[in-house]
Design a protein around this nucleic acid. Sequence first.
DNA 1: TATTTAAGCGCC
DNA 2: AAAGGGCGCTTAAATA
Length: 540
Amino acid sequence: MHLLVRAAERGVRIVALDAAGREGGASDHADLADAVRTWEAEAPRWVWDDTARRYPAVLAAGLRVARCVDLRLSRAILRSSAHTRTSELAASPADAWDSPRAESAGDGAALFDVLPPDPDPGEEFRRQRAAVAAAGEAAPRLELLLAAESAGALAAAEMRHTGLPWRADLHRALLAAALGERPAPGERPRRMAEHAGAVRRALDAPDLNPDSPPELLRALTRAGVDARSTRSSELRRLTHPVIAPLLEYKGLARLFSANGWHWLDQNVRDGRFRPDFVPGGVVTGRWASAGGGGALQLPRAVRSAVVADPGWKLVVADAAQLEPRVLAALADDAAMTRAGASGDLYAGIVASGAVDSREHAKVAMLAAMYGATSGKAGRLLPRLSRAFPRAMAVVEDAARAGERGETVTTRLGRSSPPGDAPAYDETADQDRVRARARARGRFTRNFVVQGTAAEWALSWMAIARTRLHETASGVPLAEAAHLVFFVHDELVVHAPEHAATAAADLLRRSAAEAGKLLFGAAPSDFPVAVAVVDAYSDAK
DNA sequence: TATTTAAGCGCC
DNA sequence: AAAGGGCGCTTAAATA
């Protein structure tokens, strides 16, 4: 059963929909939470405009929903999918449904005053159903993709609602140990100031601001250091007394500015970090994050502050070598699948005889998926092509398509955006035209792998979320095992100690199910490394 | 002065 | 001969 959520003069009107979107009976409610309280037991699929906008209020009321259709996210997929190219939806001009997500509710009513009037979600749902229905044999996969995308949006809102356990006291202690005491505003912490002093002395540049790359580069050159940039990776290869203190300084400066006291003040409240995930925020289907939290870039250096509550555990699950395994499954490449069957795909590639070291296997696979062709990686590629022709054909075909200006499409039906037309002044320059085409090819090459891996991860998350909710039906979200974090190929569950092992099993089973959902009963497997720990930093 | 761009670095 | 994907954030520099 689908239940459409439509704004009413007072509160919301809930309308029953059939599979094609035809409207049936309706009921009025004071607000969405009240509607959920009334209807969720019927196990509906809620149809609403924007999960990020509607769902937080439901969660705030202590409720949750099992399933939804996020019309905004679904629109984005159907707008550009090759499978719905001829639909009315794809042909229509951009409208409010193509807008980025709304600010989440609770940030003040004034925000909504400037939003355009809500377009009718019932009409949009019917347009979307028609587009999917016309997609022929691709329709079931598109259905899966829309369901997974929408489930991800629910999970994102729930993870923000419950938050990731964060021990501010431990975080402060690690900052003090690394940087010294918290400085006054505008000052450098003691340890940073010391290293800055050492850098200035080594370069004989008493006024140098080491935070300024051009200034630093000039000072390095003056001191006879042959550096083309001030990147740490480049500096590391050089020998000079300034290098050690400079690298120390850079490391501390990064910690101070990105995840120091200010970050803590802004992002951790009541023992929780509430990440602002943005489902579908990346064209490939990966999530993005917003705001200063940097949820998808939590550095390892601060993960020791992520600690389970007393009596609870963190269950950290990481999909091992996800992208090459996805490629093997996507290409139905039996040889590559066999190489992955042992658990270590790169070791399996060595065992197949294609290359002679694990390191070579890894470099070559990354080159195949990203499009590097130079150096060592480039020389290894022909050997991969001989050993795994089907897998390599998938990425090569995707690259050629991108170079020809075509789009490519993931397993479930997300298509790459069309390329920008080259600027006028570029069309005359054949080298530039070719360089653009190659860059486009690298993008489309990676798109099919990264995008399909994102679909696998979304499915994994959706299945795990459903199973977790099933085992804790009727219990408030935060009182039973629940998802707290996601990073592309990694899921973290916060679970009562007694439920941690079961959660670990659940995450493994969900991964296997996700593989079958995307690729059928193919022999590919998607092993996950699971660790039951107190601190996030103790996993791997 | 306010906003945009670039460099650098973190994550996958 | 060379040719490495996707992000977000902070600071400094450049531009309006």
